[in-house]
C-alpha cells in the first residue's frame, strides 16, 4: 500500500506539462487527464471524474481495443465505434462546460 501511494506521489510530481497551456495559457480539451488517472490510481473515483470525466471510458477503450485486436471479439468493432463516439461527446461537453464556468484559465 505504501509502495502504491509513493508511486502515485512520484507520478503526481512528474506530470507532462500541456503544451497548449504552456504557450497560450488556457486549458486544452485533454487537460486534467493525468491528474484524473492519478486519482484513479489512488482509488478516488469521484475526484477522478471531477478532474476529467472521460478517463474511465478512455481506459476502457484502450484495454478493450487490445483485447479485441488480440482475440478478435465478435462485436468488438461496433463496441469500439460506439465507445469512441461516446468519448468524443463527453470530451466536447466537458470542454464546453469548462468554458461556460470560466475554468479554462486557472
Amino acid at each position: 500500500m505504501a509502495n502504491h501511494n509513493s508511486l502515485a506521489d512520484w507520478l503526481s510530481h512528474h506530470l507532462f506539462a500541456c503544451p497548449v497551456k504552456a504557450y497560450f495559457g488556457f486549458d486544452c480539451p485533454g487537460c486534467g487527464f493525468q491528474r484524473s488517472v492519478i486519482s484513479l490510481f489512488k482509488g478516488n473515483i469521484a475526484e477522478s471524474f471531477r478532474f476529467y470525466p472521460a478517463t474511465m471510458p478512455i481506459l476502457f477503450l484502450a484495454v478493450f481495443a487490445i483485447i479485441h485486436l488480440s482475440m478478435d471479439v465478435k462485436t468488438g468493432a461496433s463496441i469500439i465505434k460506439i465507445a469512441y463516439a461516446g468519448i468524443a461527446i463527453i470530451i466536447l461537453i466537458n470542454y464546453i462546460y469548462k468554458i461556460s464556468t470560466h475554468q479554462l484559465i486557472s
Binding site: C18, P19, V20, C28, P29, G30, C31, F33, I58, L61, A62, A65, L69, A77, I80, Y84, I87, A88
Partner: peptide, 18 residues
Amino acid sequence: ATAALVLGIIALPACCFY
C-alpha cells in the same frame, strides 16, 4: 485494417497536442 483502427484510437488523445 488493424493499422487504421490503432491509429484512429491513438488520434483521440493526440488531439490535445495542438
